[in-house]
Simulated scan of single mutants.
Amino acid sequence: MTIRTVLWGQPRKDGTAAVKVYVNLNGVVRYFMVDGIYIESKFWDKNKQVVKSKHPNARLYNAKIRARKIALEEHFLNGGTFENFLKSSKSKLLTEALEEYITLNKGEYSAGTAKAYRNTISRVRQFEKHYSIKSYIKDIDEKWVADFVTYMKKMGFVKATTAYHLGRVKKAIMHQRVDNPHVEKIKHKQGRARPKPFLTPNEIAQIEKTPDSELSKAQYIVRDFFLLAYYLLLRDSDVTAISKSNFIEKNSKVFYVGTNKKTKTQVIVPVSAKAKTILQRYDYDCSRYTNSYRNKCIRRVAEIAGISTLVEDGDELVPKWKLVSMHTARRSAATNLDMQGMSQHGIKMLGGWKNLASLAVYFRSGNMDIAEKAQKFDHFK
């Protein structure tokens, strides 16, 4: 039997990598996580198999490493196997596994993602309270999933929300490295996604020209924030985070320079005169109101503006304004730029999408739009 500690060779996005214990038992190799330890390669002493003393948490991390190695050595020297060592982790509560998963990925996940995982913990606890049960990893099977789905439906949550929670449950369980034969069954079909419309340039103009007298103060402000998101191709969360430091001037032209919160990519976007006017109106502070309240306001603004083209919503047709949200601004900007002939690579760079596949889901133009755009090509002349 051979046991040693290694720094995992596949670093995370932040440059840190996991510390694992390598075990070779009669030619069978397995790696075991040392929970909570992620470090840069410069802090790892490969020869001594320890965290270098210059790391601020060296003593704590090395104590954890020693404890993990001792536990593994005792287990296998006492005749234990890989299978029954892994099974010993199955008694952990699901909520504990989720908490651990959040902690181990806190350097990788955004505040929004961490919050989403905490929402899942809350839902699991509510589910457990409703049925007077405790959910251990060993108990998570198809029946548990079916009960959870039934509970979520009873509480009025849509399929997509249930699917997202189950996806997080699955990730947390897989992180525990337990041999759970039911792990692939932890899923829920989301069903048909709700349509996500875009606004044409004419419809954007309708919102721009809606008389101020017809809007409440909050609706007026939210309309400005929506238009700013459209002009700069930003998510609402990025609009909220805007400050004066995000703007530079070059050759008498103002540019927005920021880091996309979701993808962590830098974006540089020309600032139009309309966008500049809005920014100055609020002294570059666009943080007012929550996202849910903004969505409610902009939906009402779209109704007042007469955005009433009928679009599909499930099995019925509804006025487009009913499906408008703050994110419609970003989707509309991407689609309209594409229809005006800008390269998709250029749109990707401006909006901070990670790749063209991610951008493609934003394009909402219809067949006629594409056909009209195609007329300029020689192939159709």
Rank of each mutant, 00 (worst) to 15 (best):
D139H: 10
S89C: 12
H130P: 03
I204P: 00
F43D: 09
V145D: 07
P319W: 09
Y164M: 12
N355L: 06
R281V: 12
V124F: 05
K381C: 00
T259H: 11
L317W: 04
I347R: 02
K54Q: 05
N24T: 10
A229G: 11
G191H: 14
K276R: 15
A229W: 03
I268C: 03
R125Q: 07
I307K: 11
Y230Q: 08
K348W: 01
V28I: 12
H345N: 11
L94I: 02
N24Q: 10
K262G: 07
M33K: 13
A241G: 04
E214H: 07
K376R: 05
Q206F: 12
V178T: 10
D285C: 10
K276L: 15
A218I: 09
K170T: 03
T120W: 08
N246K: 02
L234E: 10
F255V: 03
T150D: 14
T309G: 06
V6G: 06
H188A: 10
E214G: 07
K274V: 12
D212F: 07
G366R: 02
I307P: 04
V51K: 09
L337I: 04
T120L: 09
Y220I: 13
A329C: 06
G27E: 04
R299W: 11
F32M: 06
S365W: 08
A172I: 02
D224Y: 02
E108Q: 14
K253W: 09
N291V: 07
L166C: 09
E214S: 11
L356A: 05
A18D: 10
Y38F: 15
R294T: 14
M152S: 07
S216K: 06
K244R: 14
T161A: 15
Y131R: 13
I298R: 05
A333Q: 02
K196F: 06
L356V: 03
L93P: 00
D45T: 11
D285R: 12
T16S: 15
R12C: 11
E312G: 12
N62M: 06
F225G: 10
G107A: 10
V318R: 14
V239W: 03
W321L: 12
